[in-house]
Amino acid sequence: MMSIRDHSPLSDEDLFSRLRRLWRQRDPMPAGLVDDVLVALATRDLGVEYAMLTMLESSGAAVGVRGVSDVQLLEFARGTRSIMLRVSDLGDGRRRVDGWIAPAAALSVRLEQDDDDFTTAASAEGRFDFPDIPAGRTRMWLQPERGPGAAAARQGFTTDYFTV
Score class of each variant (00 low, 15 high):
M29R: 11
M2Q: 13
D116Q: 15
V39Q: 08
W23G: 05
P9A: 13
D115K: 14
A150T: 05
R154N: 12
F128L: 03
Q155G: 01
V63D: 08
R78F: 13
Q143S: 15
I133E: 00
D116G: 08
D70E: 14
G147V: 01
R110N: 03
Q72K: 14
S88F: 04
P9W: 14
I101W: 05
S59F: 03
T80G: 10
R18C: 02
P144C: 05
R154L: 15
M84F: 12
R137A: 13
F16N: 10
L33Q: 09
G149R: 15
R66P: 05
W141G: 04
D89Y: 03
S69E: 11
T54Q: 08
P30I: 01
G79M: 00
E145C: 10
R127V: 15
V164D: 07
S108M: 14
A124F: 08
R96K: 13
R21L: 14
E145S: 15
L10R: 07
V37W: 07
G156H: 07
V34D: 10
V87W: 02
I133K: 06
M2F: 13
F162P: 00
A102C: 09
T159M: 03
A151K: 12
G93Y: 06
R24G: 08
R26M: 09
A121H: 15
D114C: 04
D6V: 04
Q25Y: 08
E125A: 15
T159H: 05
I4R: 14
L85E: 00
I83W: 03
A122S: 07
P9R: 13
V164W: 04
P144H: 00
L46H: 09
D70Q: 11
R78E: 13
L19D: 02
V68M: 13
R81G: 02
T120Y: 03
R81H: 04
D115A: 15
G32T: 04
L74C: 08
T54H: 10
T158R: 13
L90F: 02
D129Q: 10
D132I: 01
V63W: 13
D132W: 05
L142M: 00
A42G: 11
R18F: 07
V109R: 00
R146F: 06
V63Q: 11
E112H: 15
L46G: 07
P134I: 05
V164H: 06
A62W: 14
L33N: 05
A31L: 08
T138A: 05
D115P: 01
D89R: 01
R5I: 11
L46P: 02
